[in-house]
Structure formats: C-alpha cells, structure tokens
C-alpha cells in the first residue's frame, strides 16, 4: 500500500459519502445517472466477490464489502425510496453499446482464460467506461448541482490517483498490471473536460455550467 493508492481509495470512499449526502439532503437523485450507478454495482459485484474465496487483507475485505453494499444501497435509493425524482428520459446512454465491447475486450485481454480472470478483466473495462452515462446526462442537462460535481470530482480523483500508484509500484516493486493501467488511463481521461470545467468554475465558487 502507498499513499497514492490510499488517497485514491479514500477519494472513492468520499465520493460515495458525498453522493449519499446529496441524495439525503436534497431528498432526490436528480442529475444522477441510474445507469452509471447500476454499472458500478456490476463492476463491484464482478470484481469484489473474490472476498468469498480469497483473503488479501482486512482493508481489502472491508473496502470491497463497503463498495458492494453502498452501491446496491444507492440503487435502492434511486429505484425505490426516491423513485419519483428519477427521470429516465434524460438517462439515455445505450449501456449495451458499452457492455458488449467490454465483454469482447475481456475475452481477448485477460491474464488467464478462466472464468474469474475474464470476469476480472470485464470488471476493469466496465469500470473505465461506467461514468459515460453520467457524463452524457451532464452534457444533456448542461449543468449540475454543486454537490454532484464534488461527487464526480472525488470519483474521478480515485482512479487518477491510482496512476501515480502504478508508477510507484513499477519502480519500487517492479510490477505492473497492463490491463488495469490501460483501463485506468482511459477512465481518468474521460474526466478531463469535466475536471477542466470543475476547476475553472466550481472551485472559483461559480455554478457548474457546460459551455452551451
């Protein structure tokens, strides 16, 4: 464990708490893409259920349980508790165009052609593109509540911080995970223009608005 990865995971943890805080305080899930949240459940279930047969560390176990549980709870909040505030008409990204290619990539790029390794690759590829429905919704509405932008900033920072972690591990342990690194670079690149707008508007205390 190194500080980059620790702060990355803490940023991911923070993003979940910010999202839960937003849903609870505004009593709505307006501006949040259900499809992205559902993809995250698929990502966590497909990658973190290895806690059932592998033990890495207490930290690893607790974090995996938390991410699976919290992402399912968020789906419950969106689909049940605050259902009236969910507008599927603006959450229009075709998820099948995302899952298909990821499944194909996982069948090609994996460390071993076994069910668990292909599933792991699928999870990694899915995670890198899971934010797309949310970004498309943002593009469509052209603006977002400030707290939602903080959620996205923390979420984007999570995998962005994994990049220096991978560099650090390459030089200190001589290990590198090409599949995770490639997907992580793509995942972080998708946040580029969001971060640009975020740091030039929200951080200056203005409202988050995409150029019309």
């Amino acid at each position: 464990m190194n500080l980059f990865r620790l702060f990355g995971d803490l940023s991911h943890l923070a993003s979940i708490f910010i999202l839960l805080h937003k849903i609870r305080t505004t009593r709505s899930c307006r501006g949040i893409s259900f499809k992205t949240q559902a993809l995250y459940v698929a990502v966590f279930v497909s990658r973190y259920l290895d806690i059932l047969w592998e033990w890495v560390s207490l930290y690893n176990f607790v974090m995996k349980v938390f991410f699976i549980a919290s992402s399912c709870f968020i789906l419950y909040l969106m689909k049940m508790k605050y259902r009236p505030t969910h507008d599927p008409s603006i959450d229009t990204f075709r998820v099948e165009f995302l899952v298909g290619p990821c499944a194909l990539l996982a069948l090609i790029f994996n460390y071993k052609f076994t069910f668990t390794e292909v599933l792991w690759s699928l999870s990694i590829f899915l995670e890198s593109l899971a934010i797309l429905p949310q970004l498309f919704m943002l593009q469509r509405t052209g603006e977002a509540e400030t707290i939602t932008t903080h959620y996205l900033a923390a979420l984007g920072a999570y995998r962005a911080l994994y990049i220096p972690n991978w560099i650090y591990r390459y030089f200190s342990e001589g290990v590198v995970d090409p599949i995770a690194v490639t997907a992580g670079l793509v995942q972080t690149a998708l946040y580029a223009d969001f971060f640009y707008v975020y740091f030039t508007t929200v951080i200056q205390g203005q409202k988050f608005e995409l150029p019309a």
């Binding site: 995996k64 071993k112 994994y162 972690n165």
Partner: peptide, 10 residues
Amino acid sequence: GHTDHVKDEL
C-alpha cells in the same frame, strides 16, 4: 505466472 498478478488493488 500472471494469474497471481497484483490482485491486492481495489
């Protein structure tokens, strides 16, 4: 082999 590649990451 690769199968034991760094799986200690989230």
